[in-house]
Design a protein around this nucleic acid. Structure first.
Length: 418
RNA sequence: GUGGGUGUAGCUCAGCUGGUAGAGCACUAGGUUGUGGUCCUGGGGGUCGCGGGUUCAAGCCCCGUCACUCACCCCA
């Protein structure tokens, strides 16, 4: 038996980094005014089809979709935004407070071919701001990402930003793009030709050398922005500049989900080969209305948790040294029973204590204490019990002292907590 | 979904032109009767991913399959 393809166990030795990230995220995001929201893993297929877009790769070929016993079409969530927006509308949150900031951490599912930094069950850290149209929240989110990565000690990251325009300016852009592509038709790959009527925006994101060359001076969304979009983008840029955040304006950055408008960005790393995006986000001013809510501007991003951890594992090599406050060695049945109670009491007092019940020799238990990184070792054998003098050994200094049973626990607490 | 690479002990790998498996690390037990991290000695562990085929004989050859991996693709 083994895990299914693209799914994996995250073993205890990797957990410290995951927890470190989770801690930093909750701390920082709360400071920025975000509230945690928890949403279902399963939703109606329709939700994702309508929000992400019928003709996107995610919806067309990557979702885990099935019918339940009653024949309802359900899908394992491939991303979080759609569900958060659904929740926002369902609970009429806009009526309570027009501005809402949410974050969540959890697994997403996409049936793609597994690769480094790409799993079929992967985790995302997601943040959304609903109800604010101002460009300041665009830069605020990028600033937030930058701050988080800084705190986590990440280096070698670059922020790529672009503006995708809005329903006002997109038609003229699409027209110009199609005209241009038409003229280069003979130099494009089959994929791009297929994209022409499905999702022409994606063509400028093609990685094939021939296409890139042919499209080197293709029209960019940036050149066709309406005044509002242009102003919006300028504020984002100048704000980031004033904050000293480096970014690259990337005209070819296109998001794979149809709901995006205006600002879009990606944080890329060089550590993960082809899976270079550790975080991505963008504005989606039309989605809330599209899903049945009132017209509500919104913006959000998602961080690839798995990728983030992988980059951290390569970047900061600091391995968390495992440690234990006290290891109890009990020799003989009587001592074992005593040791059991001591161990529980010390654990209650928040002292990391372990005891070995396997009845091993003193030598092998000393080895184990050493392996577990024990600061102190308590040695209790027949002699110690009879003489009422339990031995406490400091593993670093090798000093040993004797302690009386009656005052053992408070004494230990005093010594260890020092 | 497409293409390339890999799959031998828990881990990293070796195994020559086919003759039924090895190292280091890890684990474990000892090194005189109850004291660790170094050192020495011994020990346990492998249906050689799985299933077929060729052969007197396959870890080594062939086919299939599964998994991992890299790239395409896509995205976080």
């Amino acid at each position: 038996m083994q895990t299914i393809r693209g799914f994996r166990d995250i073993l205890p030795k990797h957990i410290p980094l995951w927890q470190k990230v989770e801690k930093e995220v909750t701390h920082l995001f709360e400071a920025f005014g975000f509230k945690e929201i928890r949403i279902p893993i399963l939703e109606k297929t329709e939700l994702f089809a309508r929000s992400i877009g019928e003709v996107t790769d995610i919806v067309e070929k990557e979702m885990y979709t099935f019918e339940d016993r009653k024949g309802d079409k359900l899908t394992l969530r491939p991303e979080a935004t759609a569900s958060i927006v659904r929740s926002y509308i369902q609970h009429k949150m806009y009526a309570i407070d027009p501005v809402r900031k949410f974050y969540m951490i959890g697994p997403m599912f996409r049936r793609e071919r597994p690769q480094k930094g790409r799993y079929r069950q992967f985790y995302q850290i997601d943040a959304e701001i609903l109800g604010v149209e101002s460009a300041y929240v665009d830069s605020e989110l990028i600033f937030l990402l930058n701050e988080l990565f800084k705190r986590l000690g990440l280096t070698g990251l670059s922020a790529h930003i672009n503006s995708l325009g809005c329903p006002e300016c997109r038609p003229s852009f699409q027209k110009a793009l199609l005209n241009f592509i038409e003229s280069k038709k003979d130099r494009l790959c089959e994929n791009c030709l297929r994209r022409m009527d499905k999702n022409p925006l994606r063509i400028i994101d093609c990685k094939i050398a021939g296409c890139r060359k042919a499209l080197a001076d293709a029209p960019a969304t940036l050149d066709y922005l309406c005044n509002d979009c242009s102003d919006h983008f300028n504020i984002v840029k100048t704000t980031l500049e004033k904050q000293g955040i480096d970014f690259i304006v990337d005209k070819s950055l296109v998001r794979g989900l149809d709901y995006y408008t205006r600002t879009a960005w990606e944080i890329q790393t060089t550590y993960l080969g082809a899976q270079s995006a550790v975080a991505g986000g963008g504005r989606y001013d039309g989605l809330v209305k599209e899903l049945g809510g009132p017209q509500t501007p919104a913006i959000g991003f998602a961080i690839g948790f798995d990728r983030l951890v992988e980059v951290m594992e390569q970047t900061n090599k600091t391995s968390e040294a495992l440690s234990l406050d006290l290891f109890i060695i009990s020799l003989g049945d009587a001592a074992m029973e005593k040791g059991y109670h001591w161990s529980c009491e010390l654990n209650q007092a928040d002292i990391r204590t372990e005891i070995d019940f396997r009845g091993k020799s003193l030598k092998s238990l000393m080895k184990r204490a050493n392996k577990l990184g024990a600061q102190y070792v308590l040695i209790a054998g027949e002699n110690e019990l009879v003489e009422n003098a339990i031995v406490l050994r400091n593993m670093n200094t090798k000093e040993q002292v004797s302690l009386a049973i009656e005052t053992l626990i408070p004494e230990l607490i005093k010594i260890i907590k020092k």
